[in-house]
């Protein structure tokens, strides 16, 4: 504890906040991060055709986007893929988190951690190329070319994102609670159902939401794996940018941004409340 009333002069504790230029650098960084996003959001309400010239306030481009069949299709496809991918990856991640935190100390646990988190470290483009080749082999062998490839690919790279919050939640959990449940006549399954699962639920929901958001805005892997006519919202937008840039893209971006911000806010609310110490 520092005693600020102490008479003898004391050097102030070191703090980056007192360094010269700290606040100006911070402002520049935040501007660089958020100014372009602000511009996109503002120009999505532009009534003109240009994405650079402001002509007046309007919801015209939102209406255009809404009525665009291609946008509608891509949105539905994105949501379907994200929904399946987040559910699959969350189930896998939940089991992985239970195994790595409640499975006792086993040999090779570090290797398991690395394997689970591999998608975070391997360059996405490598995974994308690998999946493209692998899936085309299956495609030739089976003749199937549906959405399952995209769902499988998304589920795979979403696992670490779902895993991290679930594991954090489980590690913060008092292992005595499961012993207490067993002591109070709960069979292992009932102890899991009545104690472990409710306590890890916020982590599971947070993991699922994070996986959903990650799946929703993936471009690289989707671009490589998708078959013709399987555009998701982000790859559709990428395709649009190659032709004519209209504020319609701004409007779609703004909606995606809004969805992401809402989900991430929920994520932080869910993970902020640490399990109270028993």
């Amino acid at each position: 504890m520092t005693d600020t009333t102490a008479p003898r002069p004391r050097r102030k504790a070191f703090s980056v906040r007192t360094m010269p230029g700290f606040s100006s650098i911070a402002i520049v960084c935040f501007l660089a991060l958020y100014a372009p996003i602000v511009v996109i959001v503002v120009y999505s309400f532009n009534s003109g055709n240009s994405i650079a010239l402001w002509e007046g306030l309007s919801l015209k481009w939102y209406a255009t986007a809404w009525q665009n069949d291609a946008v509608q299709e891509a949105t539905i496809r994105s949501v379907i893929i994200a929904a399946f991918a987040s559910v699959i990856s969350t189930v896998v991640a939940t089991m992985a988190a239970l195994g790595t935190t409640h499975g006792g100390d086993f040999r090779g646990r570090t290797v398991i951690y690395l394997l689970i988190n591999q998608p975070l470290m391997v360059p996405e483009i490598v995974t994308a190329v690998a999946l493209l080749i692998f899936f085309s082999m299956i495609r030739i062998a089976t003749g199937y070319s549906g959405l399952a490839y995209l769902i499988a690919a998304h589920a795979a790279f979403c696992v670490p994102f779902a895993y991290l919050p679930i594991r954090a939640r489980l590690e913060g959990m008092d292992t005595m609670l499961e012993l207490a449940a067993a002591d109070l006549y709960a069979t292992p399954w009932r102890a899991f159902r009545r104690v472990t699962l409710p306590l890890m639920a916020p982590g599971i929901v947070a993991g699922a939401m994070l996986a959903f958001v990650i799946s929703l805005d993936d471009v690289i892997i989707t671009e490589f794996v998708k078959a013709a006519g399987q555009d998701t919202l982000p790859t559709y937008m990428l395709g649009q940018l190659r032709r004519a840039i209209t504020p319609e893209v701004n409007a779609i971006s703004t909606i995606l941004l809004a969805i992401t911000v809402i989900l991430l806010t929920l994520f932080f609310i869910l993970t902020r409340k640490r399990s109270p110490k028993a």
Partner: peptide, 20 residues
């Protein structure tokens, strides 16, 4: 016998009350 089949209950040092 596993703990859930023993008519024995424990008061834990950390109490281990169910927080939910």
């Amino acid at each position: 016998e596993p703990p859930y089949r023993r008519s024995v209950n424990t008061v834990f040092q950390s109490y281990a009350l169910f927080p939910h």
